[in-house]
């Protein structure tokens, strides 16, 4: 059996009435790259904050390399964390930032400087290392943010939505970096609310919502949850209630309602032959439909099935 570097058991955390994590459990194998997929408000940042040791008042346990993560501050030297925010000094240049953040760890100065140069090359900032960071583009800042989390050669890297708010090209480059880091043997957990990212990057994917893991496995394993079904996305000027009322009257023969929201619904069909009949049923009842798409099973369908809502809302 593969050795786990991180074992999270029954983490629960509430902010007053709001439950952010509810019995959240997750294991991470050594050298594994895991994508944690969840919509906004799922509890991803709360999880990372707890693992970083900066958020208290939770219940549950976290074991890192067989030890209680919170018992020994020294374990933090083995973990790198990349927060959702660009948490660094805008008035310093990239090298100075790396040296400051690296200086918080007991790394000999010469080695630290070498590591900083190496990382700047890895995140493709070598040429602009001497410019104040505030002049950087969003993508460059994101890359620096990741580099800072890696300065002390952590065994485990946790990234909280490392690709938020940047263009596609910049995203690709961040995902490349994550894959590289994983190849070098570092265990990685990164959170995102973007399906395509986990599909491209991770061997294993976990889907979370409302503070808990709903499903996990490889991409193929997850897609099997939905089964060999066609997924139909219906859009139009309708309310969720109106759509639900009408679709209930339809005999789908194995049709599954994945999600219904105002203006959009997702249905899965084991028998694709039934799709035209369903459309006719909707039209006859004058449901204002603007668009209809048929898709083959993908992670999005799994997500819709598990959470009952689209990642985009």
């Amino acid at each position: 059996m593969q050795q786990h570097i991180l074992e999270i058991k029954n983490l629960s955390k509430s902010y007053g009435e709001t439950v952010a994590l509810a019995n959240f459990s997750l294991d991470l194998g050594k050298g594994e790259v895991l994508g944690l997929l969840g919509p906004n408000g799922a509890g991803k940042t709360t999880l990372i904050s707890i693992l970083s040791g900066t958020l208290r008042d939770f219940t549950g346990s976290v074991t890192f390399k067989g030890q209680d993560l919170f018992a020994d501050r020294g374990l933090k030297n083995l973990i790198g964390i990349v927060p959702q925010e660009m948490a660094f000094y805008e008035d310093l240049n990239a090298t100075e930032n790396l040296l400051f953040w690296g200086g918080l760890y007991a790394i000999p100065e010469k080695e630290l400087k070498k590591r900083a140069r190496e990382l700047l090359a890895l995140v493709e900032l070598g040429a602009r290392a001497r410019e104040p960071v505030k002049k950087f583009s969003g993508g460059m800042k994101r890359r620096l943010n990741v580099a800072i989390g890696l300065i002390h050669r952590p065994e485990l890297l946790l990234l909280d939505e490392p690709t938020v708010g940047i263009d596609v090209q910049a995203k690709m480059s961040i995902l490349d970096i994550i894959r590289n880091v994983g190849r070098e043997g570092t265990s990685v957990v990164f959170t995102t609310h973007q399906l395509s990212e986990v599909e491209q990057t991770c061997a294993r994917i976990a889907i979370m919502d409302r503070g808990t893991i709903l499903a996990q496995g490889t991409l193929a394993e997850l897609i099997r949850i939905v089964g060999e079904k066609e997924v139909v996305e219906v859009s139009g000027e309708f309310s969720a209630a109106a759509f639900s009322a009408i679709i209930q009257q339809f005999d789908g023969n194995g049709m599954e309602v994945l999600s219904v929201t105002d203006n959009q619904a997702h249905l899965a069909f084991a028998d694709p032959e039934r799709i035209p009949a369903m459309m006719q049923h909707l039209f006859q009842r004058h449901l204002p439909i603007a668009d209809l798409k048929i898709k083959s099973p993908n992670l999005e369908a799994v997500f819709l099935k598990m959470t009952g809502r689209s990642l985009r809302d």
């Binding site: 970083s52 933090k76 927060p83 660094f88």
Partner: peptide, 14 residues
């Protein structure tokens, strides 16, 4: 605001 303070505590600094 920039969460630099929090990030310092990500290290083993107390």
């Amino acid at each position: 605001k920039k969460r630099v303070l929090a990030r310092i505590l990500y290290s083993s600094a107390s």
